[in-house]
């Protein structure tokens, strides 16, 4: 008697990704470069976030042809993004055999009120969160992995740092609370009590917690690990840099050895130009992706 799609199987998949780097790719060739560099998974996209920004308009799930091309090219897990609340895009990706779905604010939200009920799916989901309350709401809906939202496609780490700082400081605060304080805190955070209790007992989220959104250099990736991330998503940072192979390899090593500063110095040498960055103050409110979702 076997059971598929259990919490343990879905969350366990993310546990296996810890200490690793998940890279955005837009074709088979990039996927192979990512795999050879030691990526633990790839995110198959039609455009990386910085190109989504440039293109404007409505950003949707990638063409299944691209996702299939990537799935056929590599043996590591393949993730793909659907729009927030777009149940059918998620079902399509699940039917194709994608290993993990990112219900992502990088795409234009399809539903302004409801995220997908992810407990109904066999495939696991990762969702973005800016703080502990948002993370626990997503976990209540069935997310098996959490990542910071950051500000994708900017090459600017400041938002990811803000989100991971807020998350970790809230976790420490909750951990120190007495059990009766947790009821009021659950109300404050807009998070289910039973999940908050788990955070209190574990001293961490009950699922794996990655960094994402704005990682451009090995030092950025190591910084996010230093701040308590379990691993790192790199979007535009690799294939928008001057030398993707070198960046990919350096970021993989930086995540494993994030506290080995001599190695980080070595890894940071002669990498060539990083992706060009955006000062977030120059973004208009409607251009900000981190504020999508609730």
């Amino acid at each position: 008697m076997s059971n598929v799609g259990t919490d343990r199987v879905k969350r366990g998949m993310a546990e296996m990704q810890k200490g690793g780097v998940i890279m955005d790719v837009v074709n088979a060739e990039q996927a192979k470069i990512a795999e050879a560099a030691g990526a633990v998974a790839v995110m198959a996209l039609e455009r990386v976030p910085s190109d989504i920004r440039k293109a404007g308009g409505v950003a949707r799930m990638a063409d299944p042809t691209i996702v299939e091309e990537v799935m056929n090219a590599v043996s590591i897990p393949v993730m793909a993004k659907c729009r927030i609340g777009h149940i059918v895009e998620a079902r399509i990706l699940e039917a194709m055999g994608v290993d993990y779905i990112d219900e992502s604010e990088v795409l234009t939200p399809a539903d302004e009120k409801h995220h997908i009920d992810k407990t109904k799916f066999t495939v696991p989901f990762v969702c973005g969160a800016r703080d502990l309350g948002e993370a626990l709401r997503r976990i209540a809906e069935g997310a098996s992995m959490i990542r910071t939202k950051g500000e994708p496609g900017t090459g600017n780490i400041v938002e990811a740092v803000r989100h991971q700082r807020m998350m970790q400081s809230a976790i420490r605060r909750v951990q120190a609370m007495s059990e009766d304080e947790l009821y009021a805190e659950a109300k404050n955070l807009g998070a289910p009590y039973h999940l908050l209790k788990q955070v209190h007992d574990l001293g961490r989220l009950p699922v794996v917690n990655f960094a994402a959104g704005g990682v451009a250099t090995p030092a950025d990736a190591a910084l996010m690990m230093e701040l308590g991330s379990d691993g790192v998503f790199v979007g535009s940072g690799i294939f928008k840099s001057e030398n993707p192979e070198k960046y990919a390899r350096a970021i993989v090593q930086a995540v494993t050895h994030y506290q080995d500063y001599e190695l980080l110095a070595h890894l940071s040498k002669n990498l060539g130009q990083a992706m060009s960055g955006i000062d977030l103050a120059t973004l208009r409110e409607e251009e900000r992706m981190a504020v999508r979702g609730w």
């Binding site: 008697m1 076997s2 059971n3």
Partner: peptide
């Protein structure tokens, strides 16, 4: 044989 039971959706628990 790697990934011999299928992709993630086929991952399972069993006694």
């Amino acid at each position: 044989r790697r990934n011999s039971f299928g992709r993630q959706r086929e991952s399972f628990e069993a006694e």
